[in-house]
């Protein structure tokens, strides 16, 4: 429905799209350079820097740590979110709004403040930075997202099927697990994906808790601060690849969620 008055918007829209796309295209292009310079367009097509990544123990160790952290905190945080959802939508008690507000409160605290608070607490307790403290941090950061998504999925799902199962003799737990859970599973999966991404890319709070092992965003940040050759671009492109594949495959589902403001 483009009317003539919208031509300006159309041109501006395409320019903005280009501005968003160009950095990512340049990133992939730079990673293909055969030489040591970060130049776009690349002076040739070479996978040299991708092979080179195999020898970089710093990147590989950081990737391992980040994946362990992201998978672990996603599982824990989605489970806790699901329990919160059950408590808030399947039971009657006083103060539900307050509880949800408390659970969502880490969202309004800047990441640098969360990181600082964890740092002074853990060093006060004499706890050296470890996988455990980073995991706890990532649970705090991801729980608001999972709890919110699960609560809204459970609150909007119709309860009549669950009640029908109960009236046919299923226990409340069985009715929930075998009737309601499959219905709300898209919402729960969306919550888990969101938690995974949030944990995987977290930098600002995590950098206060890394020790001689770092997470991938911290490792990449330190690398691009000091070095100016293409390995960081190669690694970034490798991380970009599954994101692009995922978005291309599930685009309709994701776009629906993003634009409905549910995430």
């Amino acid at each position: 429905m483009w009317r003539r008055k919208h031509i300006g918007v159309k041109i501006a829209g395409y320019v903005l799209l280009l501005l968003l796309a160009i950095p990512l295209i340049v990133l992939v292009g730079v990673s293909l350079n055969p030489g040591v310079e970060q130049i776009f367009p690349p002076q040739g097509i070479s996978l040299r820097w991708y092979y080179n990544l195999a020898n970089r123990s710093g990147f590989i160790g950081a990737l391992q740590l980040t994946l362990i952290l992201a998978v672990g905190s996603t599982i824990v945080s989605t489970t806790i979110g699901l329990l919160v959802g059950i408590a808030l939508t399947r039971f009657e008690f006083w103060g539900k709004d307050l509880i949800l507000t408390l659970i969502l409160s880490p969202l309004i605290v800047p990441q640098v403040v969360v990181g600082m608070a964890f740092l002074v607490t853990l060093s006060g307790l004499g706890v050296v930075s470890s996988l455990l403290s980073l995991s706890l941090l990532h649970c705090v950061i991801t729980l608001p997202f999972t709890a919110r998504a699960v609560v809204s999925a459970l609150a909007t799902s119709s309860r009549s099927l669950e009640e029908a199962a109960q009236s046919l003799g299923a226990t409340p737990a069985r009715a929930f697990l075998s009737v309601t859970l499959p219905i709300v599973s898209p919402g729960v999966i969306a919550a888990a994906i969101f938690a995974f991404v949030t944990s995987f890319e977290n930098f600002t709070a995590s950098q206060f808790l890394v020790w001689d092992r770092t997470t991938l965003p911290v490792e990449l940040y330190n690398y691009v601060q000091t070095e100016s050759d293409p390995p960081a671009a190669a690694l970034s492109s490798l991380i970009l690849l599954p994101v692009v594949l995922f978005v291309v495959v599930f685009n309709r589902f994701i776009a629906q969620h993003m634009f409905s403001g549910r995430l």
Binding site: L20, F200, E201, F203, P217, V224, V243, A255
Partner: peptide, 10 residues
């Protein structure tokens, strides 16, 4: 969505 899911550092 690709932007949204890609780390700020990258």
């Amino acid at each position: 969505v690709i932007q949204f899911f890609t780390a700020y550092v990258i």
